[in-house]
């Protein structure tokens, strides 16, 4: 599934759309501890987390995540939204629990 498909799908609200929509999403990944995610998240993951600060954006960009999905109704703060734009990272948000959001992506990938 391409990032583009997830943007079009409408299941998650798009907060920022990067220019990388041709990118493939390989798997969902869940973790809120930044250095655990940094060390273990595979490249091209759809990273589902509740942490919406600038450091989340930095980790996503440096560890080559395909996109960020903020779950459980969490939001990006203002500096983080600016960073998402500046770093060209696609960010979604949803009221869904982390598991449900990740499972939805899993189902779409394996449909």
């Amino acid at each position: 599934m391409k990032l583009y498909d997830l943007v079009q799908d409408g299941c998650f609200k798009v907060l920022n759309e990067g220019s990388t929509s041709e990118r493939e999403i390989l798997a969902p990944y869940c973790c809120d501890l930044l250095s655990v995610a940094m060390g273990r998240m595979p490249a091209d993951s759809a990273w589902v987390t509740v942490m919406g600060n600038v450091n989340t954006l930095a980790v996503a960009s440096l560890a080559d995540a395909a996109c960020i999905i903020l779950a459980e109704g969490s939001h990006l703060d203002e500096p983080a939204l600016n960073k998402a734009k500046q770093q060209d990272i696609t960010v979604f948000e949803t009221e869904m629990p982390i598991f449900d959001a990740a499972f939805l992506i899993y189902q779409k990938l394996h449909a």
Partner: peptide
């Protein structure tokens, strides 16, 4: 509260 403090930074540096 920002998501740091897992104590994985130095192990990551060594690993990568």
């Amino acid at each position: 509260n920002l998501g740091f403090g897992a104590g994985m930074g130095l192990p990551n540096m060594k690993k990568y």
